[in-house]
Design a protein around this nucleic acid. Structure first.
Lengths: 344, 344
DNA sequence: TTGAAAGCGCTAACAG
DNA sequence: CTGTTAGCGCTTTCAA
């Protein structure tokens, strides 16, 4: 039989024997090298087809020093935002013949560096998605991960493009919008402590508070999922705020669900806003006002940045900043006139 | 400097030189082979640390004939079901030191075979998720993909474990439940034509109809996403059915959203059920009655089956069948007494 | 135009 | 216990 190689699979050697030529010639034919005599090339191709030969990518990778694979490290594959980035990245990379290897750190920040290093060694480049590690650690490992693209995080290390969403601006837009509706008492349901995007939101809110000293902004502890929002109902009600800025859409949905159970009307009693504009946001009841992040686009752009690095192209504008767009829906409305003020 | 190798990265040779030993010894130390003199081992380790040496996985893969990577092919990475399977698979595989490479066919069934083959060659095994290709094609390529695990699809090819969800039983449970509530006119919003799981649902409904000849079951065209459900409002209302079995939760949510816009009360006027029990199902308004599929478990089980194959373990029960569990929530309720019958 | 041979980075059998 | 040597499957000089 044709199976000679140690691995039991058809190798280039089998094709060479069958076609009566050398390995080198088979390699040339398989790579479309036109310096091969057409007759011989045809013979090689026939042999390859007959044996169902497919080049072993591992052998190629070793010889070529590239794997045609990129890696992505995410803190939590269950998060719709990271799923969308992954999807956009995968699609864009696939169009250029690259595959993607995923690594989920399950929000264990101490694992990130190891995962990233391992993934990087098997790939031609890496996308690090909202890493939870410290600035110092990120700056230290970043050079060893090159080509590397960062999402929602920046670093002082040189030559690392960053794609960041301007969460600070987004949360300010939401807050301004609520104030425009007459709300004077706001509350922010914060995200995970380690999250850089949460930090950006906090900075944005500071700027907002400086501009609107008369508006009360209560900070509440939170997280990034449904249950966080659902569990925050008590503290939200206790805050007395009528405009709630949830860390993201999931939290907002959990909160709306909890408020609904308590008989609190949204937006009649309380206005709720999310962040991200995940697909479900337009299907909640009421539909969710949020700041839309062009997330799939982000994945595609991450690939283009990474590709430029892999190809060693000089490219002028490494990284970019994305502005969220206010998406006004039904979960927000005019502030209720205070009970004590309204009379009759 | 230490960088000698052609790729510009630190290789085993650099460590060998630095420690004054042979490559082989370095390899032994790095692989925890205890036949190495402790002093020498320490010297090697010190050299490795100093040079920040990390073994090149591609070289290892070629030598060992394994990549410690598995592949998964999905029809659509945007689908929550496949996302959940991916997540479960990734988590389970990671616990055994395996990584996962993803391939999205974007519902282009003609691409599946190529994607699967490519992914397989770079990996030690493959999970094919709900492939859309024909039975004949699947049976033909399956052997070349071994070790292979199938999800929501079976094949006559030998030695291929299949994990299938019993959609037929699930849809029957939902239908029986609705009938128990007094509904006598049901409608089924079908899924994508190529989907095997849709076929199973249809078979289940045939069995149901045989048992309940007095119940009217209207078949409506559909799809698998929000918009499908949202767009089906007219045909649903036209059918006169009071109990709607949506293909999945997404479709059900889209439908509920559309019914809400039309002022139709769910479950007062019409009961709606989904399928899958995606995380959002418990947060819709009203919360969604559905058939829960233990989807994350499925990903984990897929890995265990694949692992057994990779390790060439004989294992008695390849594949398994998952029974959906009825999850009764607020989107379903008693059938309204017909207007004409109620009086006063 | 083609083949022989070297090499990608690593593991492992085989001597010593 | 350690070094030498031979691959793993492929690409790519270098001669012929």
């Amino acid at each position: 039989m044709a199976r000679k190689s140690a691995t039991g699979r058809i190798g280039i050697a089998d094709v060479a024997v069958k076609a009566g030529v050398s390995h080198a010639t088979v390699s040339r034919v398989m790579n479309g090298n036109f310096t091969v005599d057409p007759d011989i090339a045809a013979r090689v191709r026939a042999a390859a087809v007959e044996l169902k030969y497919q080049p072993n990518p591992v052998g190629r990778s070793l010889a070529l020093g590239k794997t045609d694979t990129i890696g992505i490290v995410v803190p939590d594959l269950a998060n719709p935002t990271f799923q969308a980035i992954l999807r956009g990245l995968s699609r864009a990379a696939a169009e250029d013949g690259y595959r993607v290897l995923i690594a989920d750190s399950f929000e264990v920040s101490s694992e990130e560096a190891i995962l990233a290093g391992e993934a990087r060694r098997r790939c031609d480049g890496l996308v690090l998605c909202a890493p939870r590690m410290s600035d110092a650690e990120l700056e230290e490992i970043a050079p060893s991960l090159h080509p590397l693209v960062l999402i929602n995080r920046t670093t002082a290390a040189a030559g690392i493009p960053s794609l960041v969403v301007d969460y600070g601006q987004g949360v300010q837009d939401l807050a301004e919008y609520l104030v425009g509706l007459g709300h004077t008492r706001l509350a922010f349901l914060a995200g995970p402590a380690g999250s850089a995007s949460n930090g950006l939101r906090l900075e944005g809110l500071e700027a907002f508070k400086a501009r609107h000293p008369q508006v009360e902004v209560t900070m509440l502890d939170g997280g990034s999922d449904f249950d966080t929002g659902h569990g925050a109902v008590d503290s939200v009600l206790a805050s007395g705020a009528t405009g709630i800025l949830a860390f993201n859409d999931l939290v907002a949905m959990g909160l709306m669900s909890g408020l609904h159970e308590r008989g609190v009307d949204v937006p009649g009693d309380i206005s709720v806003t999310g962040f991200d504009d995940i697909p479900f946001a337009r299907y909640t009841t009421p539909t969710l006002t949020t700041a839309a992040v062009p997330i799939a686009e982000l994945g595609g752009q991450a690939w283009r940045e990474l590709r430029a690095l892999i190809r060693k192209e000089d490219h002028d504008a490494p990284g970019s900043r994305y502005q969220p767009r206010l998406e006004i829906r039904a979960s927000s409305g005019p502030a209720k006139a205070p009970r004590t003020a309204a009379h009759g």
